[in-house]
Each structure stands twice: as structure tokens, then as C-alpha cells.
Write a protein that binds this DNA or RNA. Structure first.
Lengths: 242, 242
DNA sequence: TAGATTGTTAATCGATTAACAATC
DNA sequence: TAGATTGTTAATCGATTAACAATC
């Protein structure tokens, strides 16, 4: 009933507190809805969403309710409004500027992700220690010497830092980010960073992710073993012959 | 009591079914333990682990119990054994070979992650469509034309495929992987892949991850606003002056 | 012995799922 | 009207946390 008002703080700012599992599903909803929209639809039901994403429709409904979206029985949700509600909730309307440190392959990859800007993240500059990289541009972004970071971050009020350096250097970089007033670190280095309480770290740990993959694979192989019979015998000696 | 036997299947194969949250913590334990070992310790307690990782010691104990590790009251766990138990459970002793498709920046980054091999993943070959890339080597790995993938995957019994191509091309690549008998796909493209049931997909979706980061940041900013007073005024005009 | 830590069971907490009335 | 879908409350499920005996 007065749920929508509960979602606002006294000053009208949306109070963004959804359960973490819900939060992780919201971008998936957004992506599906964009495709659904491209398909010419004007409304969408939780059943539609759940069918595609293999989720319980009730769960979808709860998630949508939690961001304050309202639908109509029998009809569903107005697609345009729902997409907008999602984008508003996710903060994709106002863009945060970010600094990236580590202009290697991973750094370059992230600098090239154009759609980050549609998701509220604009990487404005890269930093590195390697003199051969400093002064160049990657995907149009300048590569500056690392020691400029703290000063520039302060002056430009940068809140987000992205770390794509090797593990050994990550802590030093994090310290410089903290010094520059950065409040959130997206850490691609496989290491736990020390940091003051006011700074949050979001680890993108591919090694942990790999563990999940491997585990899913073994579980899957146990359930449905490979059609080995013919293959594993006839092809055995070819295994190393690239 | 007979917990350890419950962890085995009739044929002695370990039955790897731990809760997903537990699974995600295991690699963190491993990393901490390696550091703890480097510090000269020979045993470790759940208290030690929990202190460092900011986890409830009871939770750590349950997690370790779930992989069949046993400790001794007052002493803790023998570090060497515990690390080995983790590595065994995570399957890091036997390596899976993988094919990677998409020799761009992200692909190059992954090809350069040497430690994957210590985590049971060996990327043996890369594939691409770009003639200028085909025939080259990246981090020592050959880049082959994409159309060779299905045949080679079959002959080499490759089970894991990694997709680092743009979203538009990802489905086509996935289809070729499936054709080659690949059973697990690590998908870095921001798109949901269609696939037969016997194949598992593990999505590495940086856009979803970015949402988590942004949300943590806003929550954090609401709790502890920036020390703006002096900075945001004196430095305001410098914001765009790189 | 005293105290820290394991092993294990019970209580709590939170998310998912089920149920069902309201409504278009 | 009938039937699909929303909105909402209750039941279930599973993970985390608390409690405590066993033990070194």
C-alpha cells in the first residue's frame, strides 16, 4: 500500500536497500527488457521475464516490487516505465567518473568497454608506471604517470578507482587512491586490500570465479558423463597433435 | 563421526557438494593460508582465518568441516594438510585444458594469467576470426582460425571454452564450442547464451558486477559523506582541467 | 588445571517459494 | 464472465550464528 513511500527517505532520496540476490538480478531484468522492447512489446509480465531468465515469476514480482515498480493485474508492467524504473534505481542516469590504474591487457579491455557509460561508469583517465605507456592513449583515454593520481583524484573529485595491476603492486596503488579521496575500489588483482573503513572494495576475483566454473563442471560431468565410448578411444592419440 | 565417509561416494570419489556461499569462500581461505604459511606458521585456527577475512570463526569451521578437514582442539589445523585438502577439494591437482575464443584485450589478459594453471585451468590455444591475429602467438599461445575449433576440441577432448568476443558474436562461438563437445563455457560477453542442457555456462558479467560496486558506493556515501566542505569549493573549477 | 579451540546441535535470520485474494 | 496477473501474506528452505560439550 504505502510501500512506495517507504522506499523514500524523508528528503525524497530513494532508499536503495534491496537484498543482494535481488540486486544481482536487476541488471539481468534490464537486459532482457531491452531485448523484449526491441521485439516490439509495450508491456511485460513477470511470467515473461521468469520464462526467459529461468526464475520463479513470484521472485521476479518481489524484485520489481522492491524497486517500487507497479504493474496492473492481467496486463503486467508498462515496459517503458519499468526500464526507466530499473535505470533510475541502478543509478544509470548519473555517471560516476573513475580512474583506472594498470594499462595492461585487462586495463585496455576495460577502457574499451563502451557500455560502462550507460551503466553509470565513465573511466576518464588511465595511469601506469611504465614510461613506454605514459603519454599514449588507449581507446582515446590518456595514460598518465601514476604519481599524478592522488592530486588529480582530489581535484576532480573522483570517487571510483579501478585496479588492473599485478597483485604485488595493488596495495600501493590502493593506498594512492585512498590518498586521493577515492571511495570505491574495483579491484581486479587477486589480493585482499587493506583500506580505511570509509572506502569500499569490490573484488573481481577471476580465480574465485574459476572455482565456481570448475565445480559446476564437475557436478555436471557426474550427472551427464561425456559420450566417451567411441571418441575417447579412437581419438586418444590425437590429443596432443595440434 | 562418520562424516568423512559421508563425503565419499561408493567408489571413493569425493562427493563435492558444499553450499555455494561456502564454495566462494574456499579460495579465499586458500589464499590466506598460503600467506600464513609464508609467515612461518605450521598450524592455523578458525579464529586466525576469521580474523583476517572478517568472517565468523564458526562459519569458517563449518566450511572446513564441509570439505572434510579435521583439526584438533586447542591446536587448530595442520596448515600443510589443510592447504592440501583445499587444493584437492577444489580440483587444483588435475588440470583441465581450455580453448579461448577472442584474442582481444580481454582474451590477452586471460592468456597471461599464469596462475590459472595452479587453479586447474590451462588455456592451450586461442582462436579468432581476425586474419591479422591468426598465426600469431599471445603469451606463447597460438592463435588459430575459429573454424578449426570444433574439430580440435573434439580430438583434444577439450571440456572448457572461454568466450571473450563481443556480445554480437558470442552465441555463434558458443554454438561452435557445443559442436566441439565442450561442456563448460566461461562467458565474458554480456549476453545470455542459448545452450543444450548438458553444457553449463558461467557468466562473468562485468556490468552486473559494476552494479554491485555502484550500490555499495552509494550506500557507503550515505553513511559517511565525503569531507566535502573545503575541497568541493576550492577545487571546483579545476575539475575538468587535466 | 585452565583456557582455547574443535565438533556438533539448536536457534536465528533471511531469501525463496507457495498460497490466495484483488483486479483488470 | 473467465482467466491471467498483480500484490501480499504465510510457509518453507537453507545459511548463518549462537550455544555448549568434548578435548587437548
Amino acid at each position: 500500500m504505502n510501500l512506495k513511500t517507504q522506499l523514500k527517505q524523508p528528503d525524497g532520496t530513494p532508499l536503495k536497500t534491496v537484498p543482494e540476490p535481488t540486486l544481482k538480478r536487476l541488471p539481468l531484468y534490464h537486459r532482457f527488457l531491452k531485448g523484449w522492447q526491441a521485439g516490439g512489446h509495450e508491456t511485460v509480465s513477470c511470467t515473461d521475464i521468469g520464462r526467459d531468465l529461468e526464475l520463479d515469476p513470484t521472485q521476479v514480482r518481489k524484485d520489481l516490487e522492491s524497486i517500487g515498480a507497479a504493474g496492473r493485474p492481467r496486463i503486467g508492467y508498462v515496459l517503458k516505465n519499468l526500464i526507466e524504473a530499473l535505470e533510475t534505481f541502478l543509478g544509470w542516469n548519473n555517471v560516476n567518473e573513475a580512474f583506472l590504474v594498470g594499462a595492461g591487457s585487462m586495463g585496455s579491455a576495460l577502457l574499451g568497454y563502451r557500455k560502462f557509460e550507460q551503466c553509470g561508469l565513465k573511466i576518464v583517465t588511465a595511469f601506469d608506471l611504465d614510461p613506454s605507456k605514459i603519454g599514449t592513449r588507449i581507446h582515446g583515454k590518456h595514460v598518465l604517470p601514476l604519481d599524478k593520481l592522488p592530486g588529480l583524484a582530489q581535484r576532480m573529485h573522483i570517487l571510483i578507482g579501478i585496479i588492473t595491476v599485478p597483485a604485488a603492486e595493488a596495495q600501493g596503488v590502493a593506498d594512492m587512491m585512498v590518498e586521493g579521496g577515492i571511495r570505491a575500489i574495483w579491484n581486479f588483482a587477486p589480493i585482499r586490500l587493506q583500506k580505511p573503513e570509509r572506502v569500499i572494495v569490490h573484488n573481481e576475483d577471476l580465480y574465485c570465479s574459476l572455482v565456481e566454473l570448475s565445480q559446476k563442471l564437475s557436478a555436471n560431468l557426474q550427472n551427464t558423463p561425456p559420450k566417451r565410448a567411441n571418441l575417447s578411444r579412437t581419438g586418444a592419440t590425437a590429443a596432443l597433435a595440434i
